Computed example of a mutant assay.
Amino acid sequence: MTRTIHVTLDINGEMHSLDVEPRVTLLDALRDHLELTGTKKGCDQGQCGACTCHVDGQRVLSCLTLAAQVEGRQVTTIEGIADDDGTLHAVQRAFLEHDAFQCGYCTPGQIMSAVACIREGHAGSDAEIREYMSGNLCRCGAYNSIVAAVREAAELTAGVRQKAEAA
Protein backbone atom coordinates (compact mmCIF):
# COMPACT_ATOMS: atom_id res chain seq x y z
CA MET A 1 0.00 0.00 0.00
CA THR A 2 1.37 3.38 -1.02
CA ARG A 3 1.46 6.01 1.70
CA THR A 4 0.11 9.45 0.81
CA ILE A 5 0.22 12.82 2.49
CA HIS A 6 -2.25 15.67 2.26
CA VAL A 7 -0.90 18.99 0.98
CA THR A 8 -2.64 22.27 0.35
CA LEU A 9 -0.90 24.32 -2.30
CA ASP A 10 -1.39 27.98 -3.23
CA ILE A 11 -0.85 27.93 -6.99
CA ASN A 12 -1.34 31.20 -8.88
CA GLY A 13 -3.53 32.53 -6.07
CA GLU A 14 -5.82 29.49 -5.94
CA MET A 15 -5.77 26.89 -3.18
CA HIS A 16 -5.53 23.23 -4.19
CA SER A 17 -5.80 20.23 -1.87
CA LEU A 18 -4.01 17.08 -2.96
CA ASP A 19 -3.25 13.64 -1.60
CA VAL A 20 0.15 12.68 -2.99
CA GLU A 21 3.04 10.39 -2.23
CA PRO A 22 5.63 12.19 -0.05
CA ARG A 23 8.21 12.05 -2.86
CA VAL A 24 6.01 13.81 -5.46
CA THR A 25 7.80 16.84 -6.86
CA LEU A 26 6.19 20.21 -7.34
CA LEU A 27 6.59 19.66 -11.09
CA ASP A 28 4.65 16.39 -11.01
CA ALA A 29 2.00 17.88 -8.72
CA LEU A 30 1.51 20.75 -11.18
CA ARG A 31 1.46 18.65 -14.34
CA ASP A 32 -0.04 15.32 -13.25
CA HIS A 33 -2.35 16.30 -10.40
CA LEU A 34 -3.43 19.85 -11.27
CA GLU A 35 -3.15 19.66 -15.08
CA LEU A 36 -1.06 22.86 -15.19
CA THR A 37 1.14 21.76 -18.07
CA GLY A 38 2.83 25.08 -18.82
CA THR A 39 5.73 24.15 -16.55
CA LYS A 40 7.76 21.68 -18.61
CA LYS A 41 9.61 18.52 -17.67
CA GLY A 42 12.91 18.62 -19.51
CA CYS A 43 15.77 16.80 -17.87
CA ASP A 44 14.06 16.04 -14.53
CA GLN A 45 17.48 16.58 -12.92
CA GLY A 46 17.62 20.36 -12.38
CA GLN A 47 19.95 21.01 -15.29
CA CYS A 48 17.82 22.57 -18.04
CA GLY A 49 15.53 25.12 -16.33
CA ALA A 50 12.39 24.12 -18.28
CA CYS A 51 10.56 23.52 -14.98
CA THR A 52 11.33 26.94 -13.47
CA CYS A 53 8.54 28.50 -11.45
CA HIS A 54 8.46 30.90 -8.50
CA VAL A 55 7.97 30.09 -4.83
CA ASP A 56 7.39 33.17 -2.69
CA GLY A 57 8.78 35.22 -5.58
CA GLN A 58 12.04 33.29 -5.90
CA ARG A 59 12.76 31.07 -8.89
CA VAL A 60 12.98 27.36 -8.16
CA LEU A 61 13.46 24.24 -10.21
CA SER A 62 10.20 22.44 -9.61
CA CYS A 63 11.68 19.06 -10.60
CA LEU A 64 13.96 19.27 -7.54
CA THR A 65 11.36 20.68 -5.15
CA LEU A 66 8.96 18.39 -3.30
CA ALA A 67 5.32 19.44 -3.34
CA ALA A 68 5.28 19.12 0.46
CA GLN A 69 8.08 21.70 0.70
CA VAL A 70 5.91 24.45 -0.77
CA GLU A 71 2.85 23.96 1.40
CA GLY A 72 1.89 27.32 2.88
CA ARG A 73 3.96 29.21 0.30
CA GLN A 74 2.88 31.06 -2.84
CA VAL A 75 3.69 29.24 -6.06
CA THR A 76 3.51 31.06 -9.39
CA THR A 77 3.68 29.20 -12.67
CA ILE A 78 3.72 30.47 -16.24
CA GLU A 79 -0.09 30.24 -16.18
CA GLY A 80 -0.17 32.80 -13.36
CA ILE A 81 1.95 35.70 -14.59
CA ALA A 82 -0.48 37.30 -17.04
CA ASP A 83 -3.05 39.76 -15.66
CA ASP A 84 -6.48 38.49 -14.71
CA ASP A 85 -7.93 40.07 -17.86
CA GLY A 86 -5.51 38.09 -20.03
CA THR A 87 -3.03 40.92 -20.64
CA LEU A 88 0.35 39.32 -21.08
CA HIS A 89 3.22 40.07 -18.71
CA ALA A 90 5.85 42.44 -20.17
CA VAL A 91 8.28 39.54 -20.51
CA GLN A 92 5.73 37.45 -22.41
CA ARG A 93 5.06 40.35 -24.78
CA ALA A 94 8.80 40.92 -25.32
CA PHE A 95 9.36 37.21 -26.09
CA LEU A 96 6.68 37.42 -28.77
CA GLU A 97 8.06 40.66 -30.23
CA HIS A 98 11.62 39.31 -30.41
CA ASP A 99 10.73 35.78 -31.56
CA ALA A 100 12.59 34.57 -28.47
CA PHE A 101 11.58 30.99 -29.02
CA GLN A 102 11.76 28.32 -31.68
CA CYS A 103 10.10 25.10 -30.62
CA GLY A 104 8.80 26.79 -27.45
CA TYR A 105 9.52 23.94 -25.07
CA CYS A 106 11.92 25.92 -22.88
CA THR A 107 9.95 29.17 -23.18
CA PRO A 108 7.88 28.93 -19.97
CA GLY A 109 11.02 28.31 -17.89
CA GLN A 110 12.91 31.03 -19.76
CA ILE A 111 10.10 33.51 -19.10
CA MET A 112 9.86 32.63 -15.41
CA SER A 113 13.63 33.06 -15.04
CA ALA A 114 13.52 36.33 -16.98
CA VAL A 115 10.82 37.72 -14.67
CA ALA A 116 13.03 36.88 -11.67
CA CYS A 117 16.12 38.25 -13.46
CA ILE A 118 14.44 41.62 -13.91
CA ARG A 119 12.79 41.70 -10.49
CA GLU A 120 16.10 40.94 -8.77
CA GLY A 121 17.96 43.63 -10.73
CA HIS A 122 20.14 41.37 -12.89
CA ALA A 123 19.26 42.89 -16.27
CA GLY A 124 21.75 45.76 -16.35
CA SER A 125 23.64 44.50 -19.40
CA ASP A 126 23.49 41.74 -21.97
CA ALA A 127 26.37 39.97 -20.21
CA GLU A 128 24.55 40.10 -16.88
CA ILE A 129 21.34 38.80 -18.48
CA ARG A 130 23.27 35.95 -20.13
CA GLU A 131 24.91 35.03 -16.82
CA TYR A 132 21.67 35.11 -14.84
CA MET A 133 19.77 33.17 -17.51
CA SER A 134 22.54 30.58 -17.98
CA GLY A 135 20.62 27.95 -16.00
CA ASN A 136 17.97 27.83 -18.71
CA LEU A 137 18.92 25.84 -21.78
CA CYS A 138 17.46 26.32 -25.26
CA ARG A 139 18.13 23.47 -27.66
CA CYS A 140 17.11 25.64 -30.60
CA GLY A 141 19.70 28.34 -29.82
CA ALA A 142 17.36 31.34 -29.50
CA TYR A 143 19.69 32.93 -26.93
CA ASN A 144 20.27 36.25 -28.76
CA SER A 145 16.53 36.81 -29.07
CA ILE A 146 15.97 35.78 -25.46
CA VAL A 147 18.55 38.31 -24.23
CA ALA A 148 16.98 41.02 -26.41
CA ALA A 149 13.53 40.21 -25.02
CA VAL A 150 14.75 40.31 -21.41
CA ARG A 151 16.54 43.60 -22.06
CA GLU A 152 13.41 45.16 -23.59
CA ALA A 153 11.13 43.90 -20.81
CA ALA A 154 13.57 45.24 -18.21
CA GLU A 155 13.55 48.65 -19.88
CA LEU A 156 9.74 48.67 -20.06
CA THR A 157 9.45 47.57 -16.44
CA ALA A 158 11.92 50.24 -15.30
CA GLY A 159 10.00 52.89 -17.27
CA VAL A 160 6.70 51.88 -15.69
CA ARG A 161 8.29 51.88 -12.23
CA GLN A 162 9.79 55.36 -12.76
CA LYS A 163 6.44 56.75 -13.91
CA ALA A 164 4.70 55.27 -10.88
CA GLU A 165 7.31 56.72 -8.51
CA ALA A 166 7.01 60.15 -10.12
CA ALA A 167 3.22 60.20 -9.72
Rank of each mutant, 00 (worst) to 15 (best):
T2A: 11
V7F: 01
C63L: 10
G49F: 10
A167L: 14
L30D: 04
Q110G: 02
H6K: 15
S145R: 15
R93A: 14
G86N: 03
C117D: 06
A29C: 11
H89V: 10
V7G: 00
H89P: 06
T87Y: 00
A94T: 08
A94L: 08
H33D: 15
C51R: 09
C63Y: 06
V147D: 01
A167E: 15
S134M: 06
L27E: 04
T157D: 10
E97W: 01
T39D: 04
R31C: 02
G13V: 07
Y143R: 10
A123K: 08
A167H: 13
L88Q: 09
Y143E: 02
T87N: 02
G135P: 04
V150W: 03
M1Q: 12
A94G: 05
G86E: 00
L64M: 15
L30W: 03
T77K: 05
S62H: 11
T8V: 14
M15R: 15
G109W: 07
D85L: 01
G38V: 09
S134C: 08
L26D: 02
L156M: 13
C48F: 07
Q110D: 04
I118P: 02
T107N: 02
A166D: 13
I111A: 03
D99T: 08
D56E: 07
S145L: 00
G80D: 01
D19H: 14
M15A: 15
A149F: 06
H6Q: 14
C63V: 07
Y132I: 03
E152W: 04
Q45N: 09
C53T: 12
K163H: 11
G86F: 00
M15S: 15
D32N: 14
E14F: 03
E155W: 04
A100D: 00
E128L: 06
D99A: 11
V160I: 12
T39W: 05
I11V: 15
E131T: 13
